[in-house]
């Protein structure tokens, strides 16, 4: 434990030190090589040159890292998806043909579709309700912190917590899962919730909703506060009641933000992996695309071709939403 902490501390110090050294050193080098001092004949030219070069000194490391870890893998995945299990022989579209005939893939994409329908809608709706309600009460900020807190928990950590919530012990034993405890308290029979096909998908979704509601709430709460108070007062004078004001005056004014929140969560949902892995590992008909990809890529000897093919499918699904999301967010930021 101590050992890990020390290593972590050293890594942090070394990492920050190296970054600082790089930025300071590279800028120093630039200024030494192209000095800008008044009186020198080349001062104007050097000012222009350093102005051109300096941004790249700052951008350089990020561009390299993104290129190495994001851009290259995209092309490598496309390439792999047209090759066999060890990435050597070219197989054309046969990985894709296999994929669309695979029952596991159909199950995963169906489940992903379910997640897509439920999680963004539920998170955004609950976040909106939480934002609207917490803005009105004295202990609203405290409530907000509580609702936001799951955001700070990793997906795996959250899954562990919810595993306890859904925990099942054979009949007769004490139920330590709170859900079963409640069920037995009211005289029901305890169930192994996460093994009940179809419905177990929703039990897993609850975890992501629990996490994402805080995110939606924070963003939407800021948006709600941005609504001019007068428009609400005008609606009060126009005779609108609380619900009418909320749905006909407030929500339409933050529609853009709602769309951004919705699509951001949608992208998270398409990539959902950790929760399924930690809760069921895709058993009992709960598999999703990301977990399926992981299965093919790294388990049972690994099939790089098929794994990469699934990755490409996920990317194709995420891409349009991402483009739309970024455009929307940019429009929001430009201000209305």
């Amino acid at each position: 434990m101590i050992h890990q902490l020390v290593i972590a501390a050293i890594t942090i110090v070394f990492g920050i030190g190296a970054a600082a050294f790089y930025f300071y050193g590279s800028n120093w080098l630039l200024d030494t090589m192209l000095p800008v001092r008044s009186g020198r004949p080349d001062a104007a030219r050097n000012t222009r040159l350093t102005g051109l070069i300096r941004p790249w000194l700052f951008l350089g490391p990020a561009i390299l890292a993104l290129g190495l870890y994001l851009v290259y893998p995209v092309f490598a995945s496309v390439w792999l998806s047209f090759h066999g299990r060890d990435g050597k022989e070219f197989v054309g579209f046969s990985n894709y043909i296999w994929l669309f005939n695979d029952a596991g893939f159909r199950e995963s994409i169906f489940n992903n579709f379910l997640w897509l329908l439920v999680v963004p809608a539920a998170s955004t709706f609950l976040g909106l309700v939480a934002a609207a309600l917490t803005d009105r009460i004295k202990w609203g900020n405290f409530a907000k912190s509580l609702i936001f807190m799951p955001m700070a928990i990793s997906f795996v950590g959250a899954s562990v917590i919810w595993k306890f919530v859904y925990d099942y012990r054979a009949a007769g034993q004490d139920q330590i899962g709170i859900l079963n405890a409640i069920v037995t308290y009211f005289g029901g029979t305890p169930e192994a919730w996460i093994t009940l096909p179809f419905w177990n998908n929703f039990f897993l979704m609850v975890i992501l909703v629990w996490i994402q509601t805080g995110f939606a709430m924070v963003i939407l709460s800021a948006a709600l506060r941005g609504i001019p108070e007068e428009t609400i007062e005008a609606a009060v004078l126009d005779g609108a009641n609380g619900l009418q004001i909320f749905f006909r005056i407030m929500v339409p004014q933050i529609w853009g933000t709602i769309a951004v929140v919705w699509t951001t969560i949608t992208i998270t949902v398409l990539k959902v992996f950790d929760i399924v892995l930690a809760m069921t590992n895709g058993q009992w008909n709960t598999n999703v695309l990301a977990n399926l990809m992981f299965d093919w890529m790294f388990r049972g000897g690994g099939d790089f071709g098929r794994g990469a093919t699934i990755a490409i499918v996920i990317m194709i699904l995420v891409f349009p939403i991402m483009v739309w999301n970024i455009r929307n967010a940019r429009r929001e930021m430009e201000g209305r």
Binding site: E230, T231, A235, V236, D238, P252, Q253, W255, R336
Partner: peptide, 20 residues
Amino acid sequence: PPAQRGIAMVFQSYALYPHM
């Protein structure tokens, strides 16, 4: 309640509903 007082108000910032 305001709506039943038989009054109407014009605000400094106009307070128009921007989405309508």
